[in-house]
Write a protein that binds this DNA or RNA. Structure first.
Length: 492
RNA sequence: CGGGGCGUAGCGCAGCCCGGUUAGCGCGCCUGCUUCGGGAGCAGGAGGUCGGGAGUUCGAAUCUCCCCGCCCCGACCA
């Protein structure tokens, strides 16, 4: 069994070890692309379910658009090209041909099957979706158009890391069209709030909401908003984004509607997304040196029951009791696993389920049976207590709720403890040469100054928080006038 | 793409410098018995084109060249 490197020794090694030990994902033969294993995919399925329900509650519907996009589409929105052209995979042929070279059979693209117009594999779907929206939107009565897509996308990054940055990744992308700028802006902010809710209430991951600086804006957006979380190494991770696209895509793809007065106008657009990257954030927010730690609301398995026995007669009794408890609890708390394997001892099983991040463990043996109780142990703080079997229907949901809240509080405390206000360049460099963290600092608003800070320290503006100090001050780097503080940090 | 490290059984590694019988070790896996309340013990067993290709040699895991992949640091990146 692979040992998990301690966080204090090598944080990024620890991260990879946790993923391997929890059997969440592993590398594949395809460079930069990972295999998401059942333990990891179960989490993604829960993410999908929860978000999808919320999207629909707010009036969105799902659709599916092609994986391949005509190359020319990308060129239609100038900034969009600039942002994505460098990382696109391109389909150039539609057929292979067998050839024999030095007696060996090989396959090459059949030159005769070269495509007249090449396709790119979508790095994001704005272009192909907006090309379609042109056909769907004529009247203000067609608006708003609120569509989401669950899909895979591909961005040919130079350096990849499991979940955080993979060549292919899974995500949802919402693409909406509206009659007015105000409606578009309201949708953008509404979806950002959904992401904040999801991160904090479901993933127990406190975030800072705010607007991106101009240089960090999505390619083609008028305004980009993000939620930023703090990992245990005090670096920031952008957990989701929501973009107000203004009329940029409507103009690029000629999407117009006629209003009630008969006037023809371009529509207003938004897009918003959360990807499998969030699972990297989830791992780095809660897990410890013993492996994965998951908040109950997103865990694939909420609790595991470990029957303990010596003799075969005991096994029959204990397993039956465990199954009965599981059956009673499942309708209340969700997936519960009874670990009946008879080829390993309880201690081994405890360690294994701890590695895999199951939030709650119940142990039931002959001694417990006699006392009509089980031992109940929480993964994240090792709190262990005896609970009467009749009380489980209330005790288990309550304990899961305590775990959920505890994980959030713990993460929130880390965030608060590692967040400071900094006013001098000297203190700024000291902070980021040392432990790092989140720093609220004055900034002049100049992109060149922002770039200079990044070049010198690798620190970037994570966002301009909604809740921030807007009193005047001097830019932490250049000393010019500032109209408030923004959030600085090193990031993933 | 630049610098560094690594690639030998499912996992972790030794062997390589200095070429030489059937390539080892630990964990895991299979079979059996004893065990079972915090990573069990004993016995037997299965599992390898030594990342790929070419070369040097009587002989290559070991030497040379090329390629591929992974990890770390850069560059790159909603």
């Amino acid at each position: 069994m692979a040992q998990i490197t301690k966080r204090s020794e090598d944080y990024s090694r620890w991260y990879q070890d946790v993923i391997a030990a929890a059997e969440m994902a592993e590398n594949s033969p395809v460079r930069g692309c990972m295999v998401i294993r059942p333990n990891g995919y179960a989490i993604w399925e829960n993410i999908q379910r929860t978000l999808d329900d919320k999207f629909k509650e707010l009036g969105h519907v799902n659709a599916y658009f092609p994986l391949l996009i005509p190359k020319s589409f990308l060129a239609k929105e100038a900034q969009h090209v600039e942002g994505f052209a460098k990382e696109c995979a391109i389909v150039t042929h539609h057929r292979l041909k067998q050839v024999t070279v030095n007696g060996k059979v090989d396959l090459i693209p059949d030159p005769e099957s070269k495509l007249e117009e090449e396709y790119i594999i979508r790095p994001t779907s704005e272009t192909i979706i907006w090309d379609q929206y042109r056909k769907w939107i004529q009247s203000y009565r067609d608006l708003p158009l609120l569509i989401n897509q669950w899909a895979n996308v591909m961005r040919w990054e130079m350096r990849t890391r499991m979940f955080l940055r993979t060549t292919e990744f899974l995500w949802q992308e919402g693409h909406t069209a509206h009659a007015t700028a105000e409606e578009g802006r309201a949708e953008t902010l509404q979806m950002l709030e959904v992401y904040r809710w999801f991160a904090e209430d479901i993933l127990a991951m406190p975030v800072i909401t705010g607007a991106k600086s101009e240089s960090e804006r999505f390619a083609g957006a008028q305004e980009t908003y993000s939620i930023e979380a703090m990992m245990q190494d005090k670096k920031a991770l952008q957990a989701a984004t929501s973009h107000d696209l203004g009329q940029n895509f409507a103009k690029a793809f000629d999407v117009k509607y006629q209003n009630a007065e008969g006037k023809v106008e371009f529509v207003w657009a938004t897009s918003w997304g959360m990807s499998t990257r969030i699972m990297g954030a989830l791992i780095m927010t809660h897990s410890d040196d013993d492996g994965l730690v998951l908040p109950p609301r997103i865990a694939g398995t909420k609790a595991v029951i470990i029957p303990i026995w010596r003799k075969d007669e005991e096994m029959v009794e204990v397993v039956a009791a465990a199954e009965k408890i599981a059956a009673e609890l499942r309708p209340i708390v969700g997936a519960i696993h009874v670990d009946k394997r008879d080829n390993m001892r309880p201690g081994w099983k405890y360690a294994e389920w701890e590695r895999k991040g199951v939030p709650l463990r119940m142990e039931i043996g002959p001694r417990d049976l006699k006392d009509d109780q089980v031992m109940m142990a929480a993964r994240h703080d090792r709190n262990k207590q005896a609970v009467k079997i009749v009380d489980l229907v209330t005790a288990v949901p309550a304990e899961l709720e305590r775990i959920q809240q505890d994980l959030f509080d713990r993460a929130k405390q880390r965030l608060v403890d590692a967040t400071v206000e900094i006013d001098t360049w000297d203190d700024f460099t000291k902070l980021f040469q040392g432990d790092g963290g989140f720093a609220h600092c004055h900034w002049c608003g100049d992109a060149a100054c922002e770039q200079a800070i990044q070049d010198k320290t690798k620190v970037t503006i994570r966002n301009i928080p909604f809740e921030r100090d807007e009193t005047e001050g001097e830019c932490v780097h250049c000393g010019n006038k500032s109209i408030g503080r923004v959030l600085f940090s090193q990031s993933y």
